[in-house]
């Protein structure tokens, strides 16, 4: 793999939601790194803990959710235990975030220019005119025509795609080291999704920002990401270079996900699907969380929870790849 420096390191992250009947564990023992200039895709079904991981990294978990364990490091420095004020300075300046819905991400009562200059001036000590000039440059950079004119317009005067460009400009306006993009294209027209993804990737390259791209769209991941983490029920099921994970999935869940992507030219009768649905956080089964739906399940999966195991270039949390249990299944057969 690349020998670039890691920008973001997440180690054994655990996010809990305390409630009356105890703790719901939304993110459980999640570890990954994102290196300089790298795009890490994070995929999974709704409720798999992808967004929760993103929110935890940037310190915006909705209470009562809280980080109950593990560490988050940005450029080698812990940020999960910073004071609220110190964390506020990190947000926007060193980690930017792009949300799903550009229609609701912008404050309707302020011009986009004001939202940009406010963000710039919060983190940089620049004059009003300097901030405005930076804002116009940013709008031009994200491909908004006539930025000198558009800067004084309100969000509702922009189309959805244009608004997402503004949102991206806002996230990148003080050159953060890291961008967390949480489903940045889900709310957009299909025809615009590819543009926005391309733009996001190009801008992050230009600004030298690493990207954590959260999505449930494997197509987007395949095009954009360098590496991908597949999440299931709050844990990482498989993580590895995107080509390997797509072409040669190690975890049965990933295989199932890949089987559900339509491929043009392949004349399949029907797409394969994974039977059943992801368990609710209150009902995660013993052993491997995927075991009730797994076509390759065997005894050990129902009892012991697998950790990530090195398999070639990827790592998968599946007993199939544990040499010890592999022997055991052979013996059983």
């Amino acid at each position: 793999m690349s020998n670039k420096k890691p920008v973001l390191e997440v180690r054994n992250l655990r996010v809990e939601f305390p409630n009356r009947r105890g703790n719901l564990v939304a993110v459980d023992d999640v570890s990954f790194t994102v290196n300089e200039g790298e795009v890490l895709g994070v995929v999974g079904e709704s409720g798999a803990g992808k967004s929760m991981t993103g929110s935890a990294v940037i310190g915006l978990l909705e209470p009562p959710g809280r980080i109950a364990g593990g560490e988050v490091l940005l450029d080698g420095e812990r940020i999960d235990n910073l004071s609220p004020e110190a964390m506020r300075r990190v947000r926007g300046k060193r980690i930017g975030m792009v949300f799903q819905d550009p229609l609701t991400s912008l404050n309707p009562l302020y011009t986009v220019g004001r939202q940009l200059t406010e963000t710039i001036q919060t983190h940089q000590n620049v004059s009003d005119s300097q901030a405005r000039k930076q804002a116009i440059d940013l709008l031009a950079e994200v491909g908004i025509p006539a930025p000198e004119k558009r800067i004084d317009q309100y969000p509702h005067q922009f189309s959805g795609g244009m608004r997402q460009r503004v949102v991206i400009a806002l996230a990148l306006c003080v050159n953060p080291r890291m961008i967390i993009a949480d489903e940045p294209t889900t709310a957009l027209d299909v025809s615009i999704q590819a543009q926005i993804i391309k733009l996001l990737k190009r801008l992050c390259e230009d600004h030298g920002a690493a990207v954590m791209l959260i999505t449930h769209d494997m197509g987007v991941i395949a095009e954009t990401a360098d590496r991908v983490a597949v999440m299931y029920a709050g844990r990482i099921a498989e993580i590895g270079p995107v080509k390997d994970v797509i072409k040669n999935a190690k975890h049965p869940y990933t295989k199932g996900l890949m089987g559900s992507i339509p491929v043009v030219g392949h004349d399949l009768e029907r797409l394969s699907q994974i039977e059943g649905s992801m368990p609710r956080l209150t009902e995660i089964p013993r052993g491997c969380a995927f075991n009730p739906r797994c076509p390759e399940v065997f005894d050990r999966c129902r009892v012991e929870r697998p950790d990530l195991i090195d398999v070639g270039t990827s790592r998968a949390a599946c007993w199939l790849h544990d040499p010890a249990s592999a022997k055991k299944t052979e013996a059983a057969e």
Partner: peptide, 12 residues
């Protein structure tokens, strides 16, 4: 969302 996004931009 816009308040969440404002927080994510580190506004005071």
């Amino acid at each position: 969302d816009y308040i969440k996004f404002a927080k994510a931009r580190g506004l005071r």
